[in-house]
Amino acid sequence: MAFRFGLLFVLGLSALFALSSQYDVEKMSPVGDTHPNKDSRIRCKSAPAFALAGALEVAYNKATGKKKAFSVQEVVDCFHKGCEKSRLEEIVDWLIVNDRLAHKDKYTEYKAKVFTCRAGTSPDGLVGFKVTGLTKITPDDFEAEIQSRGVVMACVDTTRGGCPSYDDSYRGGVIAGNSTRSYYHCMENVLITGFDDDSYTVRTSRGSSFGQAGYAKIARGSNACGIEGSMTVLDTESRRSKAGVNVRTMCPTAYPKYCQKTRTCKKSTQRCSPEIKQSSSASQYRPSGDSGSRPGPNYRPSGGTRPGPGIDQAEAHPAHTVATTLEMPGIKGM
Rank of each mutant, 00 (worst) to 15 (best):
residue 210 F to D: 01
residue 85 K to E: 11
residue 81 K to M: 06
residue 49 A to W: 00
residue 53 A to Q: 11
residue 59 A to I: 04
residue 281 S to C: 10
residue 39 D to I: 07
residue 125 G to I: 07
residue 185 H to E: 12
residue 283 S to R: 12
residue 102 A to I: 08
residue 274 P to Y: 11
residue 85 K to Y: 02
residue 129 F to L: 07
residue 192 I to Q: 04
residue 270 Q to Y: 08
residue 26 E to L: 10
residue 34 T to F: 08
residue 243 A to W: 08
residue 19 L to G: 02
residue 191 L to T: 11
residue 112 A to G: 01
residue 295 P to Y: 03
residue 275 E to V: 08
residue 39 D to F: 04
residue 54 G to E: 09
residue 159 T to L: 05
residue 185 H to C: 03
residue 265 C to S: 03
residue 237 E to H: 07
residue 51 A to E: 10
residue 6 G to P: 00
residue 70 F to Y: 15
residue 117 C to W: 07
residue 273 S to E: 15
residue 310 G to W: 12
residue 195 F to E: 01
residue 267 K to L: 06
residue 26 E to A: 13
residue 144 A to F: 02
residue 185 H to K: 09
residue 280 S to P: 06
residue 260 Q to K: 15
residue 271 R to G: 14
residue 201 T to Q: 08
residue 201 T to R: 08
residue 276 I to G: 00
residue 163 C to N: 08
residue 191 L to E: 08
residue 59 A to E: 07
residue 8 L to Q: 13
residue 247 V to E: 05
residue 334 M to Y: 04
residue 52 L to D: 03
residue 293 S to V: 15
residue 200 Y to P: 02
residue 300 R to W: 03
residue 109 E to S: 14
residue 272 C to M: 06
residue 317 H to R: 14
residue 273 S to H: 13
residue 124 D to F: 03
residue 210 F to Q: 01
residue 153 M to A: 12
residue 138 T to N: 07
residue 83 C to P: 13
residue 275 E to N: 01
residue 296 G to P: 11
residue 83 C to H: 12
residue 239 R to F: 06
residue 33 D to Q: 11
residue 159 T to V: 01
residue 243 A to H: 06
residue 230 S to G: 04
residue 176 A to H: 12
residue 280 S to K: 15
residue 35 H to L: 11
residue 195 F to M: 05
residue 322 V to L: 15
residue 131 V to G: 03
residue 191 L to C: 07
residue 36 P to T: 11
residue 266 K to L: 14
residue 206 R to M: 10
residue 95 L to I: 12
residue 192 I to Y: 08
residue 175 I to F: 12
residue 195 F to S: 02
residue 299 Y to H: 09
residue 5 F to M: 10
residue 171 R to N: 10
residue 247 V to W: 00
residue 131 V to F: 04
residue 326 L to H: 02
residue 17 F to C: 03
residue 274 P to D: 14
residue 64 T to K: 10
residue 89 E to M: 03
residue 81 K to C: 02
residue 72 V to S: 00
residue 106 K to T: 13
residue 120 G to M: 04
residue 67 K to Q: 15
residue 266 K to I: 06
residue 75 V to Y: 11
residue 57 E to A: 09
residue 59 A to G: 04
residue 273 S to F: 10
residue 145 E to G: 00
residue 279 S to H: 14
residue 204 T to L: 04
residue 213 A to S: 15
residue 20 S to A: 11
residue 289 G to N: 10
residue 129 F to Y: 13
residue 190 V to M: 08
residue 137 I to M: 08
residue 34 T to Y: 02
residue 88 L to I: 09
